[in-house]
Nucleic acid binder design. Structure first.
Lengths: 260, 260
DNA sequence: AAACAAGTATCATAATATAATACTTCGCCA
DNA sequence: TGGCGAAGTATTATATTATGATACTTGTTT
C-alpha cells in the first residue's frame, strides 16, 4: 500500500495481497465471490483469482462447489488454537476463570489490550446472550469497555491522558459515551477504586465490571471482566456480589502472584 | 510443494510460502527465531526473512524486540472471530450449548468434522481441566473421539467402513484404541444407540459421550459432546444423567428442527 | 433463447521474489 | 575486557514468477 512498503526489498507484495484477501472477510462478509473479493480488496480480478485459488489449495479458504463462493475454513479456528498456546496468560488464567464463572454463575471474560482496542481472549458465557458476546477474538475500542478502562487505569497519568485524547471511539449503542471527558472521569474513578464499571456501552442493558491483571511493574495488559444484565443487577449489587471474587481472580492471575 | 501446484499459473508461490511460515507455529513451537523458521519451513534464510518481515508488518506476527523472535499476533484470534460468523451452525448452537452446560454442570463441547479429524468449534468448560481441553480449534483424529464416532455413525455403511479402514489414528494415551476392528465395533454400537461413548482415548480418566447433529438428509457433520471425569462418573450414570439432555440439545441444533 | 454476468484459462511482458553475499549486532567464553 | 561465532540485517544482480489484458466457458436471468 504505502510506498515505503512497496519499495522495500524485504517486503513480499504477493503475500501481503494474499492477507488482504483473507481480511476481506468479516462479521458481515462471511462468504465472498471472486468479483466481491476483487471489489473489497481493490485488487485486479486476475490477481484475486490467483490468490484466492492459492488460499483454497492451501486450505485457508473453503469453496462452495455450487456457488463458487469462498468461506473461511477450519484453519481459521486452528490459528486461534495455536495462538492460545503462545499466550502464557491464557494457560495461567483459564482454571481461575472457570472457577470464577462457576462461582458467580455469570458470564466471565478475559480481554487483552491490543493497540487502542481490547480483544476478548477467553469467554465463559453462563447466560444466553447476544452472539457477539460469546465469541472470542472480538475487538472493541478500549475506551468504551470496562476492561479497557480497567487496564488504562493502571497506566501513568500522562499515558492515560494521551489515550483518552487519541484512542478511537465508535458508537455501538445510543448510550455509548462519546464525550472524552466523561471517559476520562470514568477512568480516574477506576484509578481510585481499582476496578471499572460500565453500562450500555456496547449492548443495551448490559452492565460490565472489570479488574486489571497487572504485571510485576503494576502496569496491566489484560483484565478480567464480568458482564450481567441490567434487568437483574444494580451497580451496588454488582459491587457486593461480584467485585470481591472478580478482584481475587484478577490478582491471582497477575504474574508475580503465588501459584495456584 | 508438488509440481502441479508450482507449474500452475494460478498458484502464487510466495503466498503459499508465507502460509508455510505461519504453519511453522504450533502447540510446541509458539515462538520462533528466523533461523528456526528457516529450519522448520525448509525455506531459504533470505526468503524467511522477507516473508516473516512481511507478516510482521501486516500484523500477523508479533516480534519481540529483545529476542527478535516471532509469535502469533492477536490477528490469529480475530481469524477465529470471523470464522464464527461464517459458520451458521455456531450461531444456532451457542444458546443451547450454554443452556446444556448450565443444566449439566459439566464441560460441553461442539465439534465439526474436518477431513478425517474433528475440530472443536465451541467449548464450555465447567470444571478445571487439562488446558488443551478448554481451547477451541483443537483437531483430533475423528476415529478416536466420541464426537467423530457419533458423526460417522450417521454415514452409510460403506462410508463407515472406508473411514474405519483409512482415516488416521494416533496414540494419545496408553489406552487409545489402535485396533481398527474395535473402533468399527464402537461405531456400530453408536449406529444402534444414536450416540457414542468413549473412554481414555485422548486423556486418561476422561470419559466422553457425544450425540450427532444431523442435516436434513440424516447425515451428521457435527456433534455435541460432554466430557467428564471417570473418577466421579460411570458409563451407566452418564447414560442416565447426561444422555437425555445431550441428545435433546443435539436434536434441537440439527437443522430442520423447529426454531428455539 | 438470447444476453449478460460471473467464473475460468492462456500468455507475453515486466515487475518482483530470489539467494548469494556482505555487513552489523549480540551473546558467550577465555 | 576483548574477540569469536552465531544470529539478525541489508544490498544487489539475476531470472523466476506474478501480472493483467484478453479470450473462453458456464450458468443465470428475462
Amino acid at each position: 500500500m504505502s510506498t515505503e512498503k512497496r519499495q522495500n526489498t524485504l517486503f513480499v507484495g504477493a503475500l501481503a495481497k494474499g492477507l488482504r484477501v483473507l481480511r476481506a472477510f468479516d462479521e458481515t462478509h462471511t462468504e465472498l465471490s471472486l468479483t466481491e473479493l476483487a471489489a473489497r480488496t481493490g485488487l485486479d480480478k486476475s490477481a484475486v483469482q490467483r490468490l484466492a485459488n492459492t488460499l483454497h489449495l492451501e486450505g485457508m479458504l473453503d469453496k462452495d462447489p455450487a456457488t463458487r463462493r469462498f468461506r473461511p475454513s477450519h484453519a481459521w479456528l486452528q490459528m486461534a488454537y495455536v495462538y492460545y498456546w503462545s499466550d502464557p496468560l491464557v494457560a495461567r488464567a483459564m482454571p481461575r476463570l472457570i472457577e470464577l464463572s462457576q462461582q458467580l454463575g455469570e458470564t466471565v471474560n478475559m480481554a487483552e489490550l491490543s493497540g487502542d482496542h481490547i480483544i476478548y481472549v477467553s469467554r465463559l458465557p453462563c447466560k444466553r446472550t447476544h452472539f457477539a458476546a460469546s465469541v472470542v477474538g472480538r475487538r472493541l475500542p478500549a475506551l468504551s469497555t470496562s476492561a479497557g478502562r480497567a487496564i488504562l487505569s493502571t497506566f501513568p497519568a500522562d499515558e492515560r491522558a494521551a489515550a483518552v485524547e487519541q484512542w478511537m471511539l465508535a458508537r455501538h449503542t445510543p448510550h455509548t459515551t462519546m464525550d472524552r471527558s466523561e471517559i476520562a472521569a470514568a477512568i480516574e474513578e477506576a484509578v481510585q477504586q481499582g476496578y471499572a464499571v460500565s453500562r450500555d456501552q456496547m449492548i443495551l442493558n448490559e452492565m460490565a465490571i472489570a479488574a486489571p491483571i497487572c504485571g510485576p511493574d503494576g502496569r496491566a495488559f489484560a483484565a478480567v471482566q464480568c458482564s450481567v444484565s441490567a434487568h437483574s443487577w444494580t451497580a451496588d449489587k454488582i459491587r457486593r456480589n461480584i467485585l470481591p471474587a472478580l478482584q481475587d481472580t484478577a490478582n491471582a492471575i497477575s504474574p508475580g502472584a503465588s501459584r495456584s
